[in-house]
């Protein structure tokens, strides 16, 4: 059988670049020629393998938050507003392939319970990250029982989900989500309160350098917090895990919620 479709045309066909007439001709030939059909399958499979692998990486939460803020409807970029992430500064001391935003989150020097970060770039960045996290409220699973939710996470996490309460000081579990920050998987536990949502992120602390903070026996080690205009973020360690809790409540309220969930 004489093949009239060269490989280059087959590639065009697989890439969706053919005209309707070319598509019709090539389809007819694919139906007639098993070897051509096999070559097309191979090219298509290669495309799909490359796509499934190559699209696995997403822009980090930090980059997305920064860009979203910079080009938001209300704000157009100005020299004063153009703040880079300057990860190299933030990364100092933080090992491993952390998402840029996350790395910034944990090594922000003003974090250790000192108070408001004001409007400095670090504080602004941190605020963005909190805002991003809190807005990202999609759930993989709706669940009010932590036992059930822990079962759902199961092997999806590279660590065993620690004991966390389903409800606590005016908070109720509503579901969970498996999040990725670059190569790191983390559990996101969403709670509702009368005063707004609270999200608790739990991840392997290995390779992450946390700010000094202070030990809080009823919550965990190296507890520190950051308060922006709208959000509070608590960070602490316990049993090789890092906990990040974000909510709109005041610091003392967030502490109380954390205590009721993990102590």
């Amino acid at each position: 059988m004489t093949r009239t479709t060269p490989l280059s045309d087959l590639e065009k066909f697989i890439d969706g670049e053919c005209t309707p007439q070319e598509v019709k001709r090539i389809r007819a030939e694919l139906a007639r020629d098993p070897s051509l059909s096999e070559a097309a399958d191979r090219l298509d499979l290669l495309n799909r393998l490359l796509r499934s692998s190559g699209r696995d990486v997403e822009a980090s939460a930090a980059l997305r938050a920064t860009i979203a803020r910079r080009y938001s409807t209300e704000n157009t970029p100005s020299a004063s507003a153009r703040r880079r992430l300057n990860r190299r500064t933030f990364f100092a001391g933080a090992g491993g392939a952390l998402a840029a935003g996350f790395a910034a989150l944990i090594v922000v020097p003003r974090l250790s319970g000192i108070g408001d970060a004001g409007l400095d770039p670090v504080g602004t960045f941190f605020h963005d990250f909190e805002t991003y996290l809190l807005k990202d409220r999609a759930l993989d699973v709706t669940e009010t029982s932590m036992v059930q939710l822990a079962g759902w996470f199961g092997d999806r996490l590279p660590f065993a989900l620690p004991p966390v309460a389903s409800s606590g000081n005016s908070v109720k579990l509503i579901g969970g989500r498996l999040c990725w920050l670059m190569e790191r998987r983390l559990a996101s536990l969403s709670y509702e309160t009368d005063a707004g949502p609270v999200v608790l992120y739990i991840m392997d602390a290995n390779g992450i350098e946390t700010p000094p903070g202070r030990d809080a026996p009823d919550i965990g080690k190296a507890l520190s917090w950051h308060r922006s205009d709208d959000h509070t973020c608590l960070i602490w360690n316990s049993e090789q895990l890092l906990y990040v809790m974000v909510g709109t409540q005041e610091v003392h309220k967030m502490m109380s919620i954390a205590r009721s969930l993990v102590s």
Partner: peptide, 24 residues
Amino acid sequence: ELSALYRTARRILQDHDEAEDAVQ
């Protein structure tokens, strides 16, 4: 297209930090 921009930059630069900076 932010993720596509980042992935492309990272493909060319082979570096996460530089890719994010390049996107910005």
